[in-house]
Design a protein around this nucleic acid. Structure first.
Length: 339
DNA sequence: AAACTGACCAACCGCTTCCTG
DNA sequence: TCAGGAAGCGGTTGGTCAGTT
């Protein structure tokens, strides 16, 4: 595209931020908001480029950032979401409140990726490294298909969320107010994972805005992301309803394709029937056994009595893969290296 | 005590996407 | 519809520090 680097101007400082610079930036944003990042440094009296200011603010100075070690649940969430979404750090970060995409990315690269690699799991594909990719094993395909559907769904949903946020900004700026068809339960139509009202890391309070392209309607608010405990202890009725027409992207992937709709509906019905949360559904990719069932999943899981003793086909491998991830995180205190 | 090594993470770079005129 | 600017995003780099030799 040939865009000129924003930090090329002479006199602009690079490198680590000093406490004084931090102070200036925070003071300015607290008073004026960030506004245009490009013009901010001049106004705030900083010898930095706008990009650097934005990064410093979003990754470090923002008051709603949680720093420090990742909890067990956060690790679990990252691994699961990475399996679904790949390196879409910002998308993953939307499900980890108070964590930045940069922090998650760093944590993945320095901790989680290595753990998976040492387990013999390809951190990119989340498959055992020695597993031949083409496989005709029925169960594996089913699992893969299910995951794939969920990934598509999640991907489309994220795009819809982004669009919704943009629309909400637009609506606000035009003082446009319109009745919202979302249920009075306080459900924010944007997320199956986030806390109600929390959109892409920011809060939209009060007004439940409706996406013109797709609406996910849940009978109740969905518990925060990947809260296995929440979903397991408190399985809630979840129904999905797509309303309206699709546009050219995002949610259209789902709404246009009847088959996907039905798949999602089916999966959620199944989930509901089994009392499983999304986490369990994901982890229990074979659909045969819930990982959250206490303690059976240890190293001895593969010789779990009964089925075809000693058989290690792809189906089994696939199932055990997700078991192993959860066992890994569960058996390892957060922050203590396993290997 | 010094040199070396590896882990960690803040910050940068450059590409992509979005927005606006 | 298009071009250019602004912001977002993910990959990568480089500085710092702790542990080891």
């Amino acid at each position: 595209m040939g865009r000129s680097p924003c930090c090329d101007k002479v006199g602009l400082k690079k490198g680590p931020w000093t406490p004084e610079e931090d102070q200036k930036l925070m003071a300015y944003i607290e008073e004026h908001g960030h506004g245009s990042w490009r013009s901010l440094p001049t106004k705030a009296g900083l010898q930095r480029c706008g990009k650097s200011c934005r990064l410093r603010w979003t990754n470090y100075l923002r008051p709603d950032i949680k720093r420090g070690k990742f909890s067990l649940q956060e690790e679990q969430t990252i691994i699961q979401l990475h399996a679904l979404l790949g390196n879409r750090w910002s998308a993953i970060a939307t499900h980890l409140p108070k964590r930045t995409d940069n922090e998650i990315k760093n944590y993945w690269n320095t901790h989680l990726k290595k753990r998976l690699a040492k387990m013999g799991i390809d951190p990119v594909t989340h498959k055992p490294k020695n597993e031949a990719l083409p496989s005709s094993v029925d169960g594996q395909y089913k699992s893969a298909a299910k995951l794939s559907h969920m990934a598509q769904w999640e991907s489309a949903r994220l795009e819809a969320e982004a669009r919704l946020v943009r629309e909400s900004k637009l609506l606000r700026s035009h003082s446009f107010s319109q009745g919202c068809s979302s249920s009075a339960s306080g459900f924010s139509p944007v997320s199956t994972f986030m806390a109600p009202g929390q959109i892409l890391g920011s809060k939209i309070s009060g007004d439940n805005l409706e996406s013109p392209t797709s609406i996910l309607t849940f009978s109740e608010s969905i518990p925060p992301v990947m809260s296995a405990a929440n979903t397991a202890e408190n399985p809630k009725k979840q129904t999905i309803e797509f309303v309206g027409s699709s546009d050219q992207q995002g949610g259209g992937n789902i709404i246009k394709e009847e088959g996907h709709y039905q798949t999602i509906e089916f999966v959620l019905m199944q989930q509901e029937a089994e009392g499983l949360g999304f986490t369990e559904l994901l982890l229990d990719s074979s659909g045969e056994q819930s990982l959250s069932e206490g303690g059976n999943g240890g190293a001895g899981d593969s010789d779990n009595g009964g089925e075809n003793g000693g058989r290690t086909d792809h189906h089994e491998d696939n199932k055990n893969y997700w078991n192993s991830i959860l066992n890994l995180v569960n058996s390892s205190p957060a922050g203590s290296p396993l290997f």
